[in-house]
């Protein structure tokens, strides 16, 4: 499988969600040797990017339009790696399970969706801000 790396920086605004999601979908469509459903993979990458960016914009960067979200998408050795960097105080990545219990919550499904679709999820503190690292095996 070829090596692909995409590196993007956008202002901390939700209007860029569809742009980044679309880039993620287009990356998935280039994976001609992927044996699974490429359109489903494209949708999942779009979704994971959208959820991770939304958390960075609203929760970590607290909606500050002066801040920036930095995204990298890489495919190396049959592994998809997505990293979303924020410049803020961080957010809770312990996935609340919206499936359990009788209460139907309005919020809290984003991290659950990311953890459901990706194989490894890690949120780390950096010198300035945090990074949400997500990996998926493509074999």
């Amino acid at each position: 499988m070829k090596r692909i790396e995409v590196d993007i920086r956008v202002p901390n605004q939700t209007r860029y969600l569809s742009l980044i999601g679309k880039i993620g979908e287009d990356v998935a469509r280039t994976l001609r040797s992927y044996r699974g459903d490429r359109e489903e993979l494209a949708y999942h990458i779009n979704l994971v990017l959208t959820e991770a960016m939304t958390n960075a914009i609203h929760h970590a960067n607290e909606g500050d339009p002066e801040k920036e979200v930095h995204i990298t998408i890489a495919i190396i050795n049959d592994c998809l790696s997505i990293k979303v960097y924020d410049e803020g105080q961080g957010f809770d990545v312990s996935a609340l399970d919206p499936v359990k219990g009788s209460e139907i919550p309005e919020h809290g499904r984003g991290v659950y969706i990311i953890r459901s679709l990706m194989d490894r999820v890690c949120y780390r503190r950096l010198e300035e801000g945090h990074v949400l690292e997500m990996e998926k095996n493509l074999t």
Binding site: Y43, N46, I104, P105, E106, H107, I113
Partner: peptide
């Protein structure tokens, strides 16, 4: 064609 957790949350809010 595409819905995320915020879209689902808006529908849950309407439902409740």
């Amino acid at each position: 064609r595409f819905v995320d957790s915020s879209g689902l949350g808006a529908l849950v809010s309407g439902f409740k």
